[in-house]
Design a protein around this nucleic acid. Sequence first.
DNA 1: TACAATGACACA
DNA 2: TACGTGTGTCATTGTA
Length: 610
Amino acid sequence: MAGQQDDRTAERLAPAPAMTPESAPAARVAVVADPDGRGGSLQPLTEGGTPLGAPLRVRDLVAAMAAWEEVPPAGPRWVWAATDELYSRLLPDLPERRLARCHDVKLVEPLLLAQEDRYGEPRSLGAAWARLHGQPVPADLPEGPAAADSDQDSLFAPDRSRLPPGTDPLTALVAVHAEQQRRIAATADPARTRLLCAAESAGGLIAAEMGHDGLPWSAEAHDALLVELLGPRPRGGSQQQPPKLAALVAELQQALGGRPINPDSPAQVLRAFAEQGVSLASTRNWLLRQVDHPAAPLMIQYKELSRIHVAHGWAWREAWVRDGRFRPEYVVGGVVSGRWASRGGGALQIPRIMRGAAVADPGWLLVVADAGQLEPRVLAALSGDPGMIRAGARGDLYAGLAAEAFGGDRARAKLGLLGAMYGQTSGETGQLVAVLRRKFPQAMGLVEAAARTGETGGVVRSRLGRVCPPPSAEWLDRNESAARAGDGLADDAARDSRSRGRFTRNFVIQASAADWALAMIAALRRRLALIPSEVPGDRPRLVFFQHDEVVVHTPAQLADAVREAVSAAGEEARRLVFGDTPVHFPLDTHVAATYLDAKEGTDDEPEDED
DNA sequence: TACAATGACACA
DNA sequence: TACGTGTGTCATTGTA
């Protein structure tokens, strides 16, 4: 990269030497890529976003940025309109040391809008630019579908920045960024907002990298799993059912009176069961399990296998796995709570058994770490409830809880706490929640205050200040008219109200857990980059992230270093997000060749992923 | 014919 | 009374 020979070198490297920390310490650098070709424009900035000197034009953006990245002590924070557009484009050409930090205008904008009571307004650079200038705000373009097998992707990829024609993108970017920095400083807790924006932006980097690198996926192992479950792959294309599935349908038909039946049609299945004298409200598994009829277990088995065939079978692999990697598209902030969503391939719903097909390359291993009991620990840390903190100081929070309040009955302690966090008040759980309220008043007070806020139309926020969506206009309408009249709408309104209470009750926990998880992977990414590797390309990489669980693909000899990085990252996230709380957020780490084996790990403990 | 809603089940 | 939160994806079914 640096120090190459051709005549472009002087221009390419000009920005870095000219801007060493001594001469002009640029804390940040705004970047815009030319719409076509390899060039772009850079604008060094102060931390607050004030331009330092004139903008720079470079013919080779990747080389210029790589050179900047080497400037001690840490390289700048890159400021750009959207990671998922710019960084994704640069990644294939970036050298081994990837960009360390960024500020993503499109990810930061909705976080700030929500804090400013403008939830859901358009978030593109052009929209922010228009708001800044009091001009009509362009709507965001719908995000495209994942480009798994689309043959017209990059050529016609629309410019999503939504800037008015003739606007200089670098000028707009610099102005909007400076304004965002000002708005961050104006929030109720600037330090936390700053952390939230940095974590969200780091998430953008990680999502792009994981989409680029992909989760190692073995076609052989996947095939073996499918053949074992479904029988050999049908030759006649995807229309045909695999043998075990076809046999199951025949058996089912027999058991239901012999007439042809499509088990994928709930209506037909219900009718057929009714003819057998079995009346069912739906074809849900848990209902079928209670039915004493030979067709019921067949139906359950059919559903299980059919789902695997349809959602993660051979057709799925052909659509989503290329060159031994499953490459979904991760959508940072795709869930209101700050969790990620994904597009394409159902990345966040890979069934447990299928994880046996996620196999490390030869000589490599998967390090799988999940934060056990994350949400109750978050509640303990958020509320500072002394009893819950005592429980959370132990390895198993539910056991601690049981010891404090349920005579050692762990199952009841767990059920009660989950009920309290999710808003379940019916049946036995209601009584358990009552016990919790007595023993852990601060913790229960926190979730119940959140519920009341939601029920009355208010908004709640996560630890780092992510704000939940406000109620819709229809919701407010219904509630107000019900309050006015006690008419027929009252029941609906009351149901709405309680439903929103459950949502806000859960939001403070789920979103604060997402705060922690985001800070954790950001810290982990930075720490992984510091692990020395003997072969330049062979370094540990984040390859999967699912709410409270992370997978690192690493050369086998670095697995121990990765484990240490994981545990240090968890500790760092606790400190950053929850300050000096005594609650711990232990990461359960396992190392194995396949995701499934690493997940199962030591199978002596009950699994409590949420 | 194309799209939207529904039901079901996968994940945390 | 009785109610757990948040997602994505598929096939079927209903509607424009």
